[in-house]
Design a protein around this nucleic acid. Structure first.
Lengths: 340, 340
DNA sequence: CTGAAAGCGCTTACAG
DNA sequence: CTGAAAGCGCTTACAG
């Protein structure tokens, strides 16, 4: 019933614990014969090293922590999948936590993970996070940290990103290229860097194309929900005439907007073109289907883990860690919600 | 730089490690004065117990393992969220793994978790899983195990479920009540218990209503994907005339089917009524929106953790564990894909 | 090639 | 009220 230990194997075989340990780990200074003996017995007894003891000795847990703002979310669940699958390949397990976009929770979760002594932390920040002490604490605790998607520019660590500004530019340019003249923007809250960047890309595209920027056409949303999409779509048409295009920060909101337009009998894209951001699966099945920017969640997750893994190993070998900023490509995905 | 230990606090204060340890844990046999002294210093030094050492001593990790077939999936991500949020409240962290519906992966992951010595395991089985040795291994290893959604009837452990048969009956009955006479069924593979139960509920509803069961109207799908939904929707209308209703095992497939009907100019629900299962978010935003059975993922997750938590504590206190089977309620969600 | 010994950082039964 | 000691199960530097 009780788990088998090195001691039991050693006693059964009449040799020392040291030799058993070395034999199992294929140390060169153990005879072939002894190794065979030990390994055989370990096998038949179904010996598994006690990970608690191994952790204590080696000071590593082969576990990493992951904090995302939301789990029930196409983009983040794709990222999680990418991280977990990659981690598993490298022998790491992943503890996932969800901040619910709350700074307080995020801070507590960082502490939980640090107390747990995970080997590294992966995080996409909560919208509410404006203070980076908890992140700097991770760094000064010497725990590798990689941020992705919603990052803090000011924190010195590796990051995995897309070029939000360029992608937003591309999206807005597409609206312009297909004939839109009066283009609104539903943006995220003032804080996460990517909602700033997407806004700036939108603005720059307008200006580069000789369209006057009108700040009243920019709506700042809070929770980026479907309901908000509906609400602001209504508000937009109540407050403005002749808007013929919108670039929306994220697909879920865009889907809300399209639904609202449908129910208001405003035709998409004939009356108004809509372009989203992120390429959620459901964007391809609603009608009209949503033109959007593809944001490669799975690859972002994989890449983020790979960076973290390298840093964990560099740390182990006392090498200097060079922070990297990896930018992944995005694609414009053409569908029915914009004109051709 | 190095983490603070009990030893350092003891030396600084000139008392024993034992007393420091007891003071921090508020043992009654330490003087108020000493406690205050110790706690103060611990605070200022930002002492955090080394979880590796604590794990080794207490033989518990305050960590549980979770295996789901798929993460990028509305239902499972809701369950994960429920589990993680509940676990966090009780001081448990969750290691999540994804089996990709593969039996081999699932088996390896169980072993990973057991080697990691998690305090308990939560699992929803892969479709491919037909052999339960790995699950019985968990039980005989004395690690609490709770299964949810896709379970194995033969494994003796606690389970969190919905009444799939009854819910499927309810769905089929709704089609009948709204005038459908020739009702098809897209079911899941032969193995997961819930696809069997949903099929049985469908069949029983037909029979109870005097409709002859026709096995050629039942299609057995493999991966329950959107693409399969489209494919079988086409196949159904190619092979049968006059089908006026379908009950589909899961929303994603139903959404594929509706998309296919839309593109074939078959009107839903006028020509054919469609009812899904699970109530994915996107089902409410497609058009026509999908009538379905709500399956409370978040609550299933919460309940599953609560059961596991009880078992972990029972085990710790050497109490007998009584396996429970909790059945959660489902609701019929009426939308546009069925007649009223 | 083998093993005695120290130590990772805690907890707790026991003695005083 | 305090502390010495054993022990959780490993790993590894060192001696032989």
């Amino acid at each position: 019933m009780k788990p088998v230990t090195l001691k039991q194997i050693a006693e059964t075989l009449g040799i020392s614990i040291t030799t058993v340990s070395k034999a199992l780990k294929d140390y060169p200074d153990v005879s072939k014969k002894t190794k065979a003996l030990v390994k055989d017995l370990a096998q038949t007894l179904n010996y598994k090293p006690n990970s608690f003891a191994v952790n204590l000795r080696t000071k590593e847990s082969k576990t990493i922590g992951l904090i995302v703002p939301e789990i029930v979310h196409h983009f983040f669940s794709s990222v999680i999948k990418g991280i977990i699958s990659q981690a598993e390949k490298k022998g790491y397990l992943v503890i996932t936590l969800q901040s619910n976009e709350s700074y307080d929770l995020e801070r507590k979760q960082i502490e939980l993970l640090l107390n747990k002594r995970v080997d590294g932390i992966l995080i996409s920040l909560a919208n509410q996070t404006a203070d980076y002490n908890h992140l700097n604490a991770v760094m000064s605790n010497n725990t590798p940290l990689v941020m992705f998607d919603k990052i803090a520019k000011l924190v010195k660590c590796s990051k995995v990103l897309i070029n939000d500004r360029e992608a937003a530019y591309k999206a807005t340019q597409h609206l312009i290229d297909t004939g839109c003249k009066k283009i609104a923007h539903f943006r995220g809250p003032l804080l996460p860097q990517n909602s700033i960047d997407r806004f700036l890309g939108y603005k720059k595209a307008l200006i580069d194309n000789g369209i006057t920027y009108d700040s009243s056409l920019v709506y700042i949303l809070k929770d980026m929900s479907y309901e908000e999409g509906r609400f602001y779509a209504k508000k937009l048409v109540d407050e403005h005439e002749g808007v013929d295009g919108i670039f929306i920060n994220t697909d879920l909101v865009a889907i809300g907007a399209i639904t609202e337009f449908n129910s208001l009998k405003i035709k998409v894209p004939e009356d108004i073109s809509v372009i989203g951001f992120s390429n959620w699966f459901m964007s391809s099945v609603i009608s009209p289907s949503l033109t959007t920017i593809n944001q490669p969640g799975f690859e972002i997750g994989k890449k983020a883990f790979k960076l973290l893994y390298k840093e964990i190993n560099s740390k182990k070998n006392d090498k200097i860690i060079n922070f990297k900023e990896v930018i992944l490509d995005t694609q414009l995905v053409l569908r029915e919600s914009t004109k051709s």
